[in-house]
Design a protein around this nucleic acid. Structure first.
Lengths: 135, 135
DNA sequence: AAGTATTTGTCCGTATGTATT
DNA sequence: CAATACATACGGACAAATACT
């Protein structure tokens, strides 16, 4: 039962509340968050508001939302190290729609871009599966 | 005047439509997109749907939305090169709420993380202002 | 300085579609 | 087939930031 004035108000507070619970291990990696309906009832918020909060977590890469199933706490993946020559410039940006589709990327995963000293793009890789190291 | 069945349907198509217009230079960097009201009327969509489309562009780092002003086409910034020693591992992730606040980050800007070979974090920098290079 | 118009932000409600279990 | 859960889209109301007069 939720008392008025208690608990997180608005989607930001709910997002922070849930993020804290995830960090505290209340929802371990791989586990589902409560459903939108459950959250809605628990915190006495509209479903739209709950959805906005979960969207925040998704944007931060904390959860992956699967339609018809639920919002799953993100699992830290084993990252493949890509070796690039010295002088390589590494930058980052969000994926284009095409890249997101090609790599099957969930939201909240940026791309790592490796470019040569002259500016030519060497590689564009999703940051949830790769990291770049120079030697 | 919008005829039924013409133009983008739904927020995804509208987002792609606007993204194409931005790439084609119809809305140059620094310029505002049409207001939500204008888009709503032009494409005969609900305001919420228009907002979701603009949110997509924001997520991709294509625009920066300013409350009370509008959605501005993102301006490519001059990036500062940070030099790190060989063997440094570079990864990427979305900013935490704290980082976003500290750096004054708009949505759609990832963080670049430089870690030593042993895993200790050397630096965490926003990708719209920095790029990492090893030498 | 004050007030008005414009523009985005938040929140609610409702209905229907689609994917997974 | 049915139940559960997320996705999309519409509508409305008011708040808050910005710009302009």
């Amino acid at each position: 039962m939720t008392l008025p004035g208690r608990g997180p108000r608005g989607y930001r507070e709910l997002a922070e509340h849930l993020a804290r619970q995830i960090r505290d291990g209340i929802y371990p990696a791989g586990q589902r968050l409560p459903s939108e309906l459950a959250l809605q009832q628990t915190y006495d918020l509209a479903r739209n508001t709950v959805r906005k909060a979960v969207e925040e977590l998704e944007y931060q890469g904390l959860v992956v939302v699967q339609r018809g199933y639920g919002a799953v706490v993100a699992i830290e993946q084993e990252k493949q190290r890509v070796i690039v020559p010295a002088g390589t410039v590494v930058s980052g940006r969000m994926p284009t729609l095409t890249e997101a589709y090609e790599w099957g990327l969930p939201r909240g995963i940026p791309m790592l871009i490796a470019t040569g000293p002259d500016g030519t793009v060497i590689q564009a890789l999703p940051a949830d599966r790769f990291e770049i190291v120079t030697e």
